[in-house]
Design a protein around this nucleic acid. Structure first.
Lengths: 184, 184
DNA sequence: TCAATATACATCGGCTCCGAGGTTTAAAGA
DNA sequence: TCTTTAAACCTCGGAGCCGATGTATATTGA
């Protein structure tokens, strides 16, 4: 998703892509050559991108990669109907968020944000005692577990706040679009 | 790490472990049978845990798992000197945090928190333009990328705040310990 | 002039993990 | 009584990813 997402902005060669992906997701977990290049080849085989050789600006020749219509469609499908992990795993969610603007319909964008919002709403019950009964945060003896839950709750609230404002914004935009279509 | 961490609290059988791991890390990404049971076997082979069969309270017989001294040592090594991913990947970091109390020395605990603190300190530069120049957050045209960076910064500050208070606390504790040893 | 470095691409073995499928046991319901 | 459900465990094939290794090219600097 990150490869197609970046290529949707402008054509890039593999090495550049590697650095951009590394800056985004890789801040957390850098992407290895052995992952990137086979993936590029897979996307090429699937006709999601095309490559043409260009002289390297500094050294070896580059393969300039360009996204195709097929690739754009694929990217939009991934964004519109993301796999569960992209909603529940923060790392993946951030990657998705970084390219959500490529889904051009504000109503569809809002739907994706709503899925995340819904996920954040369910209260996290992380720890249980020997009998299986949930332990409330204030009864945890480990200060680290206490902090873990504090941080989790606080960051969730921050994101929920942003999500709600964003969803309202997008629905307003979608509403205008409908009214304009209705008026024309 | 989660398996040994949970077993350090009290003995459990595999099925129970599965639910607990799923509640912790699995809130994000549930753990599959095909992952859990081979891992238990690996830990048993490495003498990190022992198992004895007990009648199932509800149905099929259970394998009660108990952590050994070797397992405790291994757990402490993982906690004391975590792999980079456990510092930089939020999911893994939260798992580590959930069991950090099993590292009993407050000075060692503080050192781990300091590693996370150091990581959070480096400013995240996530996006670049076509020339490779970094794009400042306020110049991003995508509201999602803007929000992404806002949330990232805000949650980082929350965690940094907690980390600093916690590290100070732990060092105070370690200081008392030293003074007490010195006075005796 | 020659080595060292950085750019840029590629492959391969190995490891981890998942999901699908399967087994056994006991309780619950029809 | 018989089926269904849930608990509890296990295995295997395949997919994905990583790290090591290797190659070619241009610049830098000793």
């Amino acid at each position: 998703m990150a490869i197609l997402g970046f290529l949707r902005d402008f054509p890039l060669h593999g090495y550049d892509l590697k650095n951009r992906v590394a800056s985004l997701a890789g801040h957390v977990r850098p992407v290895a050559d052995g992952t990137l290049y086979p993936t590029i080849k897979k996307l090429e085989d699937a006709q999601c991108l095309t490559r043409r050789t260009a002289p390297g600006s500094v050294a070896a020749p580059r393969h300039m990669l360009e996204i195709t219509q097929t690739g754009t469609d694929q990217l939009r499908r991934w964004l519109r109907d993301p796999e569960p992990g992209f909603i529940t795993d923060d790392n993946k969610w951030y990657v998705l968020l970084a390219f959500l603007h490529h889904l051009e319909n504000p109503r569809e964008q809002a739907l994706v944000l709503a899925r995340r919002r819904e996920f954040l709403d369910q209260p996290a019950q992380l720890f249980f005692d020997a009998t299986g009964a949930p332990i409330p945060p204030e009864q945890l003896d480990s200060p680290f577990r206490k902090g873990l839950m504090q941080i989790h709750r606080s960051t969730n609230l921050t994101e929920i706040d942003w999500l709600d404002r964003q969803i309202a914004d997008l629905n307003r935009k979608a509403g205008y679009a409908v009214r304009q279509r209705g008026a024309s």
